[in-house]
Amino acid sequence: MKRRKVGNMLGLAVLSVVLERPMHPYEMAAVLKQRGKDADMPIKWGSLYTVVANLEKHGFIEAVESVKDGGRPERTVYRITPAGREEFEDWVRELVGTVDPEPPRFRSGLSMMGVLGPDQTISRLRQRLGELDERAGKQRAVLEQLRPMMPRVFLIEVEYDIAMTEAEARWVRGFLDELTSGALPGIDAWRRYYETGEFPDDLGEFVEQE
Protein backbone atom coordinates (compact mmCIF):
# COMPACT_ATOMS: atom_id res chain seq x y z
CA MET A 1 0.00 0.00 0.00
CA LYS A 2 1.23 3.49 -0.86
CA ARG A 3 2.55 5.66 1.96
CA ARG A 4 0.45 8.84 1.88
CA LYS A 5 1.11 12.31 3.22
CA VAL A 6 -2.20 12.06 5.08
CA GLY A 7 -2.83 8.37 5.72
CA ASN A 8 -5.70 8.63 8.20
CA MET A 9 -8.87 7.24 6.58
CA LEU A 10 -10.76 10.22 7.96
CA GLY A 11 -8.76 12.25 5.44
CA LEU A 12 -10.31 10.23 2.64
CA ALA A 13 -13.76 10.84 4.11
CA VAL A 14 -13.13 14.59 4.38
CA LEU A 15 -11.99 14.77 0.76
CA SER A 16 -15.15 12.93 -0.30
CA VAL A 17 -17.45 15.60 1.14
CA VAL A 18 -15.50 18.74 0.22
CA LEU A 19 -15.41 17.36 -3.33
CA GLU A 20 -19.13 18.21 -3.42
CA ARG A 21 -18.92 21.73 -1.99
CA PRO A 22 -16.88 23.83 0.44
CA MET A 23 -17.56 23.04 4.10
CA HIS A 24 -16.33 23.86 7.57
CA PRO A 25 -15.18 20.93 9.77
CA TYR A 26 -18.37 20.81 11.84
CA GLU A 27 -20.43 20.44 8.67
CA MET A 28 -18.03 17.81 7.32
CA ALA A 29 -18.56 15.69 10.44
CA ALA A 30 -22.34 16.16 10.33
CA VAL A 31 -22.56 15.06 6.68
CA LEU A 32 -20.28 12.06 7.21
CA LYS A 33 -22.25 10.90 10.26
CA GLN A 34 -25.53 11.36 8.41
CA ARG A 35 -24.24 9.11 5.63
CA GLY A 36 -22.93 6.50 8.05
CA LYS A 37 -19.36 6.72 6.82
CA ASP A 38 -18.10 5.65 10.24
CA ALA A 39 -19.54 2.22 9.36
CA ASP A 40 -17.56 2.12 6.08
CA MET A 41 -14.13 2.99 7.47
CA PRO A 42 -12.34 3.42 10.80
CA ILE A 43 -13.03 7.01 11.88
CA LYS A 44 -11.91 8.72 15.08
CA TRP A 45 -13.90 11.92 15.24
CA GLY A 46 -11.56 13.46 17.82
CA SER A 47 -8.84 13.71 15.19
CA LEU A 48 -11.00 15.62 12.68
CA TYR A 49 -9.40 19.04 13.13
CA THR A 50 -5.89 17.54 13.04
CA VAL A 51 -6.71 15.71 9.82
CA VAL A 52 -8.19 18.87 8.27
CA ALA A 53 -5.07 20.81 9.24
CA ASN A 54 -2.84 18.14 7.69
CA LEU A 55 -4.87 18.10 4.48
CA GLU A 56 -4.46 21.88 4.26
CA LYS A 57 -0.74 21.66 5.09
CA HIS A 58 -0.13 19.30 2.17
CA GLY A 59 -2.23 21.33 -0.26
CA PHE A 60 -5.18 18.95 -0.60
CA ILE A 61 -7.71 21.48 0.72
CA GLU A 62 -7.61 25.24 1.15
CA ALA A 63 -9.45 27.78 3.25
CA VAL A 64 -11.83 29.99 1.29
CA GLU A 65 -13.60 31.98 4.01
CA SER A 66 -14.45 32.20 7.69
CA VAL A 67 -18.09 32.33 8.69
CA LYS A 68 -19.77 33.53 11.88
CA ASP A 69 -22.98 31.76 12.94
CA GLY A 70 -24.68 33.59 15.79
CA GLY A 71 -22.71 33.38 19.01
CA ARG A 72 -20.64 30.43 17.85
CA PRO A 73 -16.89 30.76 17.22
CA GLU A 74 -15.80 31.69 13.73
CA ARG A 75 -15.56 28.66 11.43
CA THR A 76 -13.18 28.23 8.52
CA VAL A 77 -14.69 26.88 5.29
CA TYR A 78 -12.48 24.64 3.16
CA ARG A 79 -12.64 23.51 -0.46
CA ILE A 80 -10.78 20.77 -2.27
CA THR A 81 -7.82 21.70 -4.47
CA PRO A 82 -6.84 20.08 -7.79
CA ALA A 83 -4.10 18.22 -5.89
CA GLY A 84 -6.71 17.09 -3.36
CA ARG A 85 -9.00 15.73 -6.06
CA GLU A 86 -6.08 13.88 -7.63
CA GLU A 87 -5.11 12.44 -4.22
CA PHE A 88 -8.71 11.43 -3.50
CA GLU A 89 -9.11 9.60 -6.82
CA ASP A 90 -5.72 7.90 -6.49
CA TRP A 91 -6.57 6.78 -2.94
CA VAL A 92 -9.88 5.29 -4.03
CA ARG A 93 -8.21 3.54 -6.99
CA GLU A 94 -5.76 1.95 -4.59
CA LEU A 95 -8.46 0.84 -2.14
CA VAL A 96 -10.59 -0.69 -4.90
CA GLY A 97 -7.79 -2.37 -6.84
CA THR A 98 -5.21 -3.42 -4.24
CA VAL A 99 -5.54 -6.27 -1.75
CA ASP A 100 -5.02 -5.12 1.84
CA PRO A 101 -1.90 -6.85 3.19
CA GLU A 102 -3.10 -6.59 6.80
CA PRO A 103 -4.49 -9.94 8.04
CA PRO A 104 -7.93 -9.74 9.66
CA ARG A 105 -8.14 -10.23 13.44
CA PHE A 106 -10.14 -13.44 12.99
CA ARG A 107 -7.30 -15.00 11.01
CA SER A 108 -4.88 -14.14 13.81
CA GLY A 109 -7.18 -15.84 16.32
CA LEU A 110 -7.52 -18.95 14.16
CA SER A 111 -3.75 -19.24 13.97
CA MET A 112 -3.64 -19.51 17.78
CA MET A 113 -6.80 -21.49 18.48
CA GLY A 114 -4.86 -24.60 19.47
CA VAL A 115 -4.52 -23.13 22.95
CA LEU A 116 -8.30 -23.28 23.44
CA GLY A 117 -8.82 -26.94 22.65
CA PRO A 118 -11.65 -28.29 20.50
CA ASP A 119 -14.50 -27.77 22.97
CA GLN A 120 -13.76 -24.10 23.71
CA THR A 121 -13.17 -23.49 20.02
CA ILE A 122 -16.57 -24.99 19.21
CA SER A 123 -18.22 -22.79 21.84
CA ARG A 124 -16.58 -19.60 20.62
CA LEU A 125 -17.25 -20.36 16.96
CA ARG A 126 -20.91 -20.99 17.74
CA GLN A 127 -21.01 -17.58 19.39
CA ARG A 128 -19.32 -16.02 16.38
CA LEU A 129 -21.71 -17.74 13.98
CA GLY A 130 -24.71 -16.41 15.89
CA GLU A 131 -23.29 -12.88 15.73
CA LEU A 132 -22.55 -13.24 12.00
CA ASP A 133 -26.09 -14.43 11.25
CA GLU A 134 -27.51 -11.54 13.28
CA ARG A 135 -25.24 -9.04 11.51
CA ALA A 136 -26.20 -10.36 8.07
CA GLY A 137 -29.89 -10.01 8.96
CA LYS A 138 -29.41 -6.39 10.01
CA GLN A 139 -27.36 -5.63 6.90
CA ARG A 140 -30.06 -7.09 4.63
CA ALA A 141 -32.70 -5.04 6.44
CA VAL A 142 -30.67 -1.84 5.90
CA LEU A 143 -30.22 -2.67 2.22
CA GLU A 144 -33.94 -3.25 1.70
CA GLN A 145 -34.72 0.03 3.48
CA LEU A 146 -32.30 2.02 1.33
CA ARG A 147 -32.98 0.42 -2.06
CA PRO A 148 -36.09 2.47 -2.88
CA MET A 149 -34.28 5.71 -2.01
CA MET A 150 -30.81 5.33 -3.51
CA PRO A 151 -29.25 4.09 -6.77
CA ARG A 152 -27.49 0.74 -6.46
CA VAL A 153 -24.09 2.30 -7.18
CA PHE A 154 -24.30 4.07 -3.80
CA LEU A 155 -25.22 0.84 -2.00
CA ILE A 156 -22.47 -1.41 -3.34
CA GLU A 157 -20.56 -1.30 -0.04
CA VAL A 158 -23.65 -2.64 1.78
CA GLU A 159 -23.93 -5.49 -0.73
CA TYR A 160 -20.24 -6.22 -0.17
CA ASP A 161 -20.73 -6.28 3.61
CA ILE A 162 -23.55 -8.80 3.26
CA ALA A 163 -21.53 -11.01 0.89
CA MET A 164 -18.49 -11.02 3.18
CA THR A 165 -20.56 -11.68 6.31
CA GLU A 166 -22.44 -14.55 4.67
CA ALA A 167 -19.24 -16.03 3.23
CA GLU A 168 -17.57 -16.02 6.64
CA ALA A 169 -20.69 -17.54 8.21
CA ARG A 170 -20.66 -20.35 5.64
CA TRP A 171 -17.01 -21.09 6.36
CA VAL A 172 -17.51 -21.04 10.15
CA ARG A 173 -20.59 -23.27 9.84
CA GLY A 174 -18.65 -25.80 7.74
CA PHE A 175 -15.68 -25.83 10.12
CA LEU A 176 -18.02 -26.24 13.08
CA ASP A 177 -19.56 -29.26 11.38
CA GLU A 178 -16.10 -30.83 11.12
CA LEU A 179 -15.34 -30.11 14.77
CA THR A 180 -18.64 -31.27 16.22
CA SER A 181 -18.76 -34.44 14.11
CA GLY A 182 -15.15 -35.32 14.90
CA ALA A 183 -14.31 -35.34 11.18
CA LEU A 184 -11.44 -32.85 11.56
CA PRO A 185 -8.17 -34.78 11.16
CA GLY A 186 -6.15 -34.79 14.38
CA ILE A 187 -8.95 -33.57 16.65
CA ASP A 188 -8.28 -36.32 19.22
CA ALA A 189 -4.58 -35.44 19.36
CA TRP A 190 -5.54 -31.78 19.69
CA ARG A 191 -7.84 -32.59 22.63
CA ARG A 192 -5.11 -34.62 24.37
CA TYR A 193 -2.65 -31.79 23.88
CA TYR A 194 -5.11 -29.34 25.44
CA GLU A 195 -5.83 -31.64 28.39
CA THR A 196 -2.23 -32.72 29.12
CA GLY A 197 -0.15 -29.85 27.75
CA GLU A 198 2.09 -32.44 26.06
CA PHE A 199 2.74 -31.89 22.38
CA PRO A 200 2.87 -35.16 20.39
CA ASP A 201 6.29 -36.28 19.25
CA ASP A 202 4.76 -37.37 15.96
CA LEU A 203 2.93 -34.58 14.14
CA GLY A 204 1.28 -37.29 12.08
CA GLU A 205 -1.21 -37.61 14.92
CA PHE A 206 -2.59 -34.26 13.84
CA VAL A 207 -2.92 -35.43 10.27
CA GLU A 208 -4.53 -38.86 10.52
CA GLN A 209 -7.41 -39.96 12.72
CA GLU A 210 -6.67 -42.70 15.24
Rank of each mutant, 00 (worst) to 15 (best):
M9P: 10
Q209Y: 06
A30K: 13
V18A: 03
R21S: 14
V64Q: 10
E166S: 07
H58F: 15
M150R: 14
G114L: 13
R72V: 04
E102H: 02
R3G: 02
V52Y: 03
D133N: 14
R191D: 13
R79T: 14
Q120M: 13
A189Q: 06
P103D: 03
R79H: 04
V31R: 12
R107K: 09
Y160T: 14
R135G: 08
G97H: 09
D133R: 14
E56G: 01
T165C: 07
P42R: 03
E74Q: 14
R105V: 15
H24W: 08
L203A: 01
Q139W: 10
E166Q: 11
A136H: 00
P148S: 14
A63T: 12
V115C: 04
R4H: 00
L110N: 07
A183I: 09
E166N: 06
R35S: 05
L19E: 12
L116K: 11
R79M: 06
E198W: 08
L184K: 12
E74L: 14
K44E: 13
V6A: 03
F60G: 04
H58T: 00
L146K: 05
R85F: 08
K68C: 05
M164H: 13
E159V: 09
A83T: 09
K44S: 11
E210W: 09
M23N: 02
R170H: 08
K138P: 08
F199A: 10
M23Q: 09
L12W: 00
L203I: 11
V77W: 09
E195H: 04
T180L: 04
T98P: 00
D188M: 14
E62M: 10
W91A: 03
M113S: 15
R4I: 00
R85D: 09
W91V: 00
V207R: 00
D188F: 04
M149I: 12
N8A: 10
E210M: 12
R93E: 14
F206K: 01
F60Y: 15
D40Q: 15
V172E: 04
A189V: 10
P101M: 03
F106W: 07
E62D: 00
M23C: 07
G46M: 08
M112I: 12
R79N: 05
R192H: 07
D38M: 05
E210Q: 13
V172C: 02
P151S: 10
E198Y: 07
L48K: 06
D38H: 13
V6H: 00
Q127N: 03
